[in-house]
Amino acid sequence: MARTDALIFDMDGTMVDSMPWHAKAWIEFARRRGLALDVPDLMRRTTGRNAFECACELMEREVSVAESDAITHEKESIYRELFGAVFAEVAGFNAFARAAAARGLKIAVGTAGDRHNVAFVMERLRMDPLPLAIVGGDEGFTGKPTPAIFLEAARRIGVAPAHCIVFEDAPFGIEAARRAGMRAVAVCTTHSAAELAGPHVIAAVRDYEELALSNFLETLDAATA
């Protein structure tokens, strides 16, 4: 196994258990606008993609920036209201990230979420130490499955892609890690291990408590000794 210098985490469904609330937000968005919306299909097509890409998928056409901004503001405001009332990390995330940092691993976040959702999550998650870099989906990078967000996260922390491990809960994110030349851990909060499989996927777990019980970080240390 290649030396590991950094862990790059997706945010929604990977750091925080938010994906059901994104789905609920789309349901409420559709109700308010009187839209007939197949939410599971929309989630399948958009999870990991940036806001503009999601708006285009929703409307099934190229939208304007203003239209995308309006859709994003409305839907994400609903999401933050819903999830804020029941906010929860993916079990064991903070403890795992803290233990990884204590072992000298660099921590970064690579998410398709915009700055408002990033601020919402980080304020409530209270990571200590904070990530060394956070790359968001509203910074001009194409969304997953392209590797742009993960490659930028690696660039910002000064680590070669081959020495990074990505943590992801969605097929587009797992594919983005592969295209970036990074290994991946599948966090099976919203998809099965089979749906998140790949030759670069080195573990598939339900949450970080399970990952900690497997001595995952200790295994990385042994691989780099």
Rank of each mutant, 00 (worst) to 15 (best):
D114Y: 03
E123W: 00
D114S: 08
P131K: 06
M122V: 06
A112K: 09
D128H: 09
A119G: 12
A112W: 07
V135G: 04
L125R: 12
G110F: 03
V109T: 11
G136A: 15
A119E: 15
M122K: 06
E123T: 12
F120M: 04
M127L: 15
G136C: 15
A119I: 02
D128P: 00
V109I: 15
V118N: 05
I134Q: 03
V109A: 07
F120N: 03
F120S: 03
P129Y: 10
M122Q: 11
P129C: 08
V135P: 04
I107F: 03
D114P: 01
G137T: 07
V118Q: 06
V135E: 04
M122Y: 13
G113Q: 01
E123N: 13
E139V: 13
R115H: 15
I107S: 02
N117F: 00
M122R: 13
P131Q: 05
R124D: 07
V121L: 02
V118L: 11
R115M: 08
V118C: 10
G136H: 11
I107K: 07
R124I: 09
L130S: 13
H116G: 00
I134N: 04
I134A: 07
G113Y: 00
A119Y: 03
P129R: 06
I107N: 01
A108I: 08
E139M: 15
P131F: 02
A112L: 08
R124T: 08
M127S: 02
G137R: 11
